[in-house]
């Protein structure tokens, strides 16, 4: 199976490659449109700031390519947020895949949220074999509110979407590649979709 991790200069993507390697999957890092289109699975990572990440996507035409993909696509962290309509971070227009905007956490809790939070309310094959209230590791200041595309939630002062899905597009706010065995199970599930 051919898996490609979209490499557009956004943060620590080697960890995802290493996590997939631990599952026996040799994913490639690439920004090449043909390479991405011809993959069985595509991972859309992202760490950093939304508007500069979107600028990088626009500069390379990836902003057009990603929403047009037909195979399973998994957005991780900022990747998931960029797949939404917009983000309050830098007033950024997103890829418009998920039908929700991304907002900043209010200052009721510490921002960023850093650490292991429980996830619940699963309604996607992505979570097959993962227990409700399992822990996943997240680091983020912005979140997607609950919407029609929500397939798992977490609490941080408020309830928010910790995972989204629409057709072949999946997104998780946490870092499965850093979430121990449960995260590894989720990546395995994605590879098996």
């Amino acid at each position: 199976m051919k898996t490609t991790i979209i490499d557009y200069g956004a943060g620590n993507i080697q960890s995802i490659q290493f996590a997939l390697a631990r599952l026996g999957n040799e994913a490639r890092l690439s920004a090449d449109p043909d390479e991405i289109r011809s993959s069985d699975k595509v991972i859309f990572p992202g760490v950093g700031e939304a508007s500069s990440a979107m600028n990088k996507l626009r500069a390379t035409g990836l902003d057009q390519l990603i929403p047009a993909l037909n195979q399973p696509v998994l957005g991780i962290c900022l990747g998931m947020q960029l797949m939404c309509q917009s983000s309050e971070e830098g007033n950024t227009k997103g890829l418009g895949i998920f039908n929700t905007d991304v907002l900043r956490f209010s200052d009721e809790g510490k921002v960023p949220q850093v650490g292991w939070n429980t996830i619940e309310g699963f309604s996607s094959d992505l979570f097959a074999g993962i227990s409700e209230n399992e822990f996943m590791y997240s680091v983020h200041s912005f979140y997607a509110p609950i919407s029609e595309d929500t397939v798992a939630i977490s609490q941080y002062g408020i309830s928010y979407s910790v995972a989204l899905q629409k057709n072949n597009f999946y997104g998780v706010q946490f870092h499965p590649e850093k979430s121990s065995t449960a995260g590894s199970k989720l990546l395995q599930n994605f590879l098996e979709l």
């Binding site: 080697q14 996590a19 590791y137 680091v139 870092h175 590894s184």
Partner: peptide
Amino acid sequence: IAEQLDIP
């Protein structure tokens, strides 16, 4: 370390 470790 990054190759082996599955926590941050």
